[in-house]
């Protein structure tokens, strides 16, 4: 049991940190530009594929630095020639633009790299077991992922709280109009933030690609969860996104470890298990089965009771 708890915690934190890498960029974009970027997970996928391609041609360590930059440039280009054109029509068309973009990116990736998973491997340098506990090993690459995500989180924190550009971004998170009034080139800031956010997503892709499978559906699977993280944490709140990422990572991992159903709970308190009726299936379902659904339930509940999210200060 103890090893299950330890490994679940490790995996949960790792998954949470990965989510945060993606969510931090998304929440920046969302808060500043008001764009719910449906294509954000597509940038994550692009990162994984760029990383794969570059590590085929050159080396994983080159890919680690170059691929996120490439994705960031793609992101900036999308903002400059796509979103900015749509911006004048309002927020809904912007969102729909990213919706369509996610579609197109997935198709293009399928065309270029095929529909099957690609053989994106852990670099030889990190292809060993970091430690062994109760007979279960933990791969070094996962520790590396964890380190990278924590490092990025710290750097992000430093930039946002200690640097001038960070102050502008922070100001723009809460008072976007005021920042524009003060003479900052808001479109340029937008482009940079969008590029930076996409680059972060790309980085997440580069490091997640070898650990998880790099395939065309990887964006689609992760997309909706990101919105849950951002909205649950509170719009425009990086600490909120951080807490939400970890919370959802841990909940998802621990839910899997629990094998009890509602029916078991009823039996435990001495009640009969309902066997008939439309909802009878509900009593049979174990916590492990509904694990992946829990984040959506959390999203709906928090929005009903606290529309600003966990740590957010504004709704729109």
């Amino acid at each position: 049991m103890l090893e299950l708890v330890i490994f679940s915690t490790l995996n949960g934190v790792l998954y949470g940190m990965l989510l945060f890498l993606l969510a931090s960029g998304l929440t920046l974009i969302f808060s500043m530009m008001g764009v719910l970027n449906f294509a954000h997970a597509s940038f994550y996928m692009l990162g994984a594929y760029f990383g794969f391609q570059l590590s085929q041609w050159l080396d994983f360590w080159v890919a680690l630095f170059v691929a996120p930059v490439c994705v960031g440039l793609v992101g900036a280009a999308v903002e400059r020639w796509g979103l900015r054109t749509v911006h004048k029509w309002g927020h809904v068309p912007e969102l729909l633009f990213t919706f369509g973009l996610a579609f197109v990116v997935e198709e293009l990736v399928q065309m270029v790299w095929g529909k099957l998973p690609v053989d994106y491997r852990v670099p030889a340098l990190l292809d060993f077991h970091a430690f062994e506990l109760f007979g279960t090993t933990y791969p070094a690459f996962r520790m590396f992922m964890l380190l990278i995500s924590v490092a990025i989180f710290l750097v992000l924190l430093m930039i946002l709280t200690r640097s001038r550009i960070g102050l502008i971004i922070q100001a723009a998170l809460t008072h976007p109009n005021m920042v524009a009034m003060l003479g900052h080139n808001v479109p340029k800031v937008f482009m940079m933030v969008f590029g930076f956010g996409s680059g972060l997503a790309g980085l997440a892709g580069v490091i997640a690609g070898p650990a998880l499978v790099t395939q065309p559906s990887m964006a689609h699977v992760l997309g909706p969860i990101l919105f849950v993280v951002v909205v649950f944490g509170g719009l425009g709140s990086l600490p909120g996104a951080f807490i939400a990422s970890l919370l959802i990572g841990l909940i998802q991992t621990f839910a899997i470890a629990i094998n009890y159903s509602l029916g078991d709970a009823l039996s435990a308190i001495g009640m009969a298990r309902p066997m008939q009726g439309v909802l009878s299936d509900l009593w049979q379902v174990t916590v492990a089965q509904v694990g992946p659904v829990v984040p959506y339930l959390m999203l709906v509940l928090i929005l009903i009771f606290r529309p600003t999210g966990l740590m957010g200060t504004r709704e729109n």
Binding site: L36, L235, P307, N316
Partner: peptide
Amino acid sequence: TVFAMISLG
């Protein structure tokens, strides 16, 4: 946004 997100959830 709140409505949109609740509908998504």
